[in-house]
Nucleic acid binder design. Structure first.
Length: 576
RNA sequence: GCGCCUGUAGCUCAGUCGGAUAGAGCAACGGCCUUCUAAGCCGUGGGUCACAGGUUCGAAUCCUGUCAGGCGCGCCA
């Protein structure tokens, strides 16, 4: 509807101003005030200067040049030079039938044109359960993925598993030490190892399976770290002792045990949060397959790598980073950054034309260098989009809950789900812009009242279901074909219709801007419009043409609510 | 010190590409259930869009500066 108007306007502008640059589609927007018609455009004011004419005079010329259309009832000049469009009676109402015909596809777009997009998100280290901070990234990334897919992109969702490096060694060590404790060895568990109960549980299982196979004397372990100068050095010494005592293969097997448990747990947790991944990508596999060397070679051949102070550097400052970065240390080991470049190159090699990375906001200093790497590898600066997700602070009423991953003191995503439910959690997570801090009030999310926007929206959906059921009970099932949609002319009906017709634009905007919060706000407004109508007028009335028109409108509202909620991953209940 | 983000009603926040009289929810106050779910609706009050300049037909929105808050600045991951 909007694009049709843009088409009409473009032709009118070309006719009125043959020499004007009309390469860009003219700006057309919804009016805020019904007195200004249905749509308005500012083209006359935009072109006034280059046309050398007052805006209102130019507006008249453009209106006079408008091609005939079934869509437009009239166009008039307003204010400083706006052109207000009043649509022909019935044009807006026609959207009701469009919605009912499209059903679950109502709002689906084709802007993505099948472009292959990878959305990588969560990617939390598998060293413990997901906490509420990860939950926000999960909800956000999932909504963005759903929106992109609905807008015509070919979306793949991936979870990058950081299963290589020192943190993994510490995780394996943590399991082994707990195992030794389970065997009855007396030793103090290090404060900088993984504290969580899940390690103790895994150790108990391991002990049950393997008996004393992996046991050595506690004194032996403690002796290994006796000379260590720092807690970190002590940990490294114990890791070395464990490798020595168990053998590298057995140590790795130990790691795989707890890693598999953790990943299974995370997958299960996310599935219950209605977040699914197409692929789980192992960092370890990347390293063993020589991907890091492949990436280094790629950067090197492009001429962006040099040696200095015994290390290998990437000239990221050429691509907007504030300084160059080390890829391979003087010690010969590659940096985390080098592995990350290899991972991004791997994504590109798999044929993804656009990459979307969703990271915690604490990584924002890392964005320029990864952006630089992708630019260096592709020669383009628009292949990678990085979206940061700010942390969520949890409140219970006015009390702020403390969070510390290191100390093992945090609220898990699972606990959050158990307490407030998946629907409320998902909605609350995405109702704020991802780059804004979020204060998540558990009491509010749980409340079954009008303070809670999730229930407000779901209630609107359930109410339509209830109305439809009562119509059936009275032997008056909704029959859209028998509806006279032009009867939908009250203030409340017009408002609801207008909002429904906006849905495709809202979805497209939310998808292209990675902004699900705009959809969340829209659904709130849509529910509001429905509740207002519900209270102002009866749906089930004797006049069949009017009754069916109102029922059709209600069903269209329900469909729009359902499609929108689905994009947020929130249920649309039949009754509440 | 440098970089990024933020500052809008008492509180929490929307505000798309600059557009017409800056909007919601909560809180406060006053109404609405013999009629489709009151988890709802209607109404009232509430603003120096942090501050100061600039750009222009027009600025909460763009630019510059100031103030305030948050985060990030490793041959860590």
């Amino acid at each position: 509807m909007k694009s049709e108007l843009q088409e009409l306007l473009a032709r009118a502008v070309t006719a009125a101003l043959p020499e004007a640059d009309t390469s860009r589609a003219p700006h057309v927007e919804r009016t805020r005030d019904a007195a200004h018609g249905d749509f308005a455009s500012n083209v006359a004011m935009v072109y006034a200067k280059q046309a050398g004419q007052p805006p209102r005079q130019l507006a008249q010329m453009i209106i006079d040049s408008l091609p005939a259309s079934d869509l437009v009832e009239k166009a008039e000049i307003a204010g400083p030079g706006f052109i207000n469009f009043f649509l022909r009676r019935g044009e807006m109402q026609a959207v009701v039938r469009q919605v009912l015909e499209a059903g679950a596809d109502w709002g689906r777009g084709s802007q993505g044109a099948g472009l292959r997009v990878m959305v990588e998100f969560v990617s939390a280290n598998p060293t413990g359960p997901l906490h509420v901070g990860h939950g926000r990234g999960a909800a956000y990334g999932d909504c963005v993925s759903r929106l992109l897919a609905f807008t015509g992109f070919d979306v793949t969702r991936e979870y990058y598993i950081n299963d290589a490096g020192r943190q993994m060694d510490i995780l394996a060590l943590s399991l082994w030490l707990r195992y030794l404790q389970a065997c009855g060895e007396q030793l103090d568990f290090p404060g900088n190892a993984y504290q969580g109960d899940y390690v103790i549980e895994a150790a108990a299982t391991l002990r049950a399976q393997r008996g004393d196979d992996l046991r050595i004397a506690a004194d032996d372990v403690l002796a290994a770290q006796a000379d260590a100068e720092s807690p970190d050095a002590a940990l490294d010494a114990m890791i070395a002792r464990a490798r020595d005592a168990l053998g590298a293969d057995e140590f790795l097997a130990l790691l795989d045990i707890i890693l598999t448990l953790q990943i299974d747990d995370i997958r299960d947790d996310l599935e219950q949060f209605r977040v699914g991944f197409d692929h789980w990508f192992s960092e370890r596999g990347l390293v063993t397959e020589g991907a890091v060397q492949h990436a280094l070679k790629g950067l090197s051949e492009a001429g962006h790598v040099y040696e200095q102070d015994g290390a290998t550097w990437f000239a990221s400052s050429r691509f907007g980073d504030e300084k160059d970065r080390v890829l391979v240390r003087a010690s010969g080991s590659h940096t985390y950054f080098a592995a990350d470049i290899a991972y991004h190159l791997n994504k590109l090699d798999r044929g993804f034309e656009r990459l979307v990375d969703i990271w915690g906001a604490d990584h924002h200093g890392y964005v320029p260098r990864v952006r630089a790497a992708v630019a260096a590898l592709t020669g383009a600066d628009d292949r990678l989009a990085v979206q940061l997700v700010q942390f969520a602070n949890l409140y219970r009423g006015a009390e702020r809950l403390p969070m510390s991953t290191r100390a093992g003191q945090y609220v898990t995503l699972r606990e959050l789900r158990d307490e407030v439910g998946t629907d409320a959690a998902r909605y609350f997570y995405v109702m704020r812009s991802n780059d804004q801090h979020l204060d998540f009030d558990l009491e509010l999310a749980k409340s079954r009242s009008n303070e809670n926007p999730v229930y407000y929206i779901q209630y609107a959906h359930a109410r339509v279901c209830s109305v439809a059921q009562q119509a059936r009970d009275k032997q008056w099932p909704a029959d859209p074909d028998a509806a006279d949609l032009t009867r939908l002319d009250t203030e409340q009906e017009q408002r609801l219709i207008t909002l429904i017709s906006k849905f495709p634009e809202i979805v497209e905007n939310a998808a292209l801007n990675y902004a699900p919060q705009t959809l969340a706000h829209y659904l709130r407004d849509l529910a509001d419009a429905f509740h207002s109508l519900y209270n102002a007028h009866q749906f089930i009335v004797d006049d069949a043409a009017l009754r069916n028109a109102r029922l059709a409108l209600a069903l269209a509202a329900r469909q729009t609510l359902a499609n929108g909620l689905d994009l947020l991953g929130v249920d649309a209940p039949q009754s509440m």
